[in-house]
């Protein structure tokens, strides 16, 4: 199936993503930030679909938007936010933040301008219908060890979260 109106959807989805990213770091209320972040994640899932990566897009929605962000919302509701609403939102580091952001942005621009030749003009269009199967082949073949380590990492995270959040063990 040929994608349609690629240019329009690219600009639309990137606008959604970047504007919601901006809202994430500027909103006073943490719940609004979380909702903006969810919108950014969904927009990014759309970008993945445009990059012929349907499996990553699905994982992004099911794990990030449906799992991690629910965890965030849950915690935001547990910690009362009335007090933090009245406080100063931005720390005194904002000059540092702005400078470092500008420096990073400049670095990226420089790299992209210099490195434009590195990226091949032609892009492969990977077969969309067998994307999941091929990722599975890599995951359980080439990256088997990394996969096992990831499971260990998750185990550590589970134990860590339980130890942190429980009052008395």
């Amino acid at each position: 199936m040929q994608p349609v109106a690629t240019t329009f959807f690219f600009y639309f989805l990137s606008a959604v993503t970047v504007i919601s990213g901006l809202l994430v770091i500027t909103r006073r209320n943490a719940v609004h930030s979380a909702l903006a972040l969810i919108l950014a994640l969904i927009g990014q899932a759309g970008l993945y679909l445009m990059l012929y990566a349907p499996f990553v897009a699905g994982v992004q929605i099911i794990l990030y938007a449906g799992g991690i962000m629910v965890l965030f919302l849950f915690v935001i509701m547990l910690v009362s936010i009335e007090q933090s609403l009245k406080e100063e939102q931005f720390s005194k580091l904002w000059v540092v933040g702005l400078v470092s952001a500008l420096a990073l942005g400049g670095l990226f621009v420089a790299v992209y301008l210099k490195g434009k030749g590195i990226f091949p003009e032609r892009v492969m269009i990977p077969p969309e219908t067998s994307n999941t199967q091929e990722i599975a082949n890599y995951l359980y073949g080439n990256y088997m060890f990394a996969f096992e380590i990831a499971s260990l990492l998750l185990l550590v995270a589970i134990i860590g979260a339980v130890v942190m959040a429980k009052k008395r063990i």
Partner: peptide
Amino acid sequence: MNIGVLFMLGV
């Protein structure tokens, strides 16, 4: 969709 079940569970 190639990811039909995943899409459905995710959404």
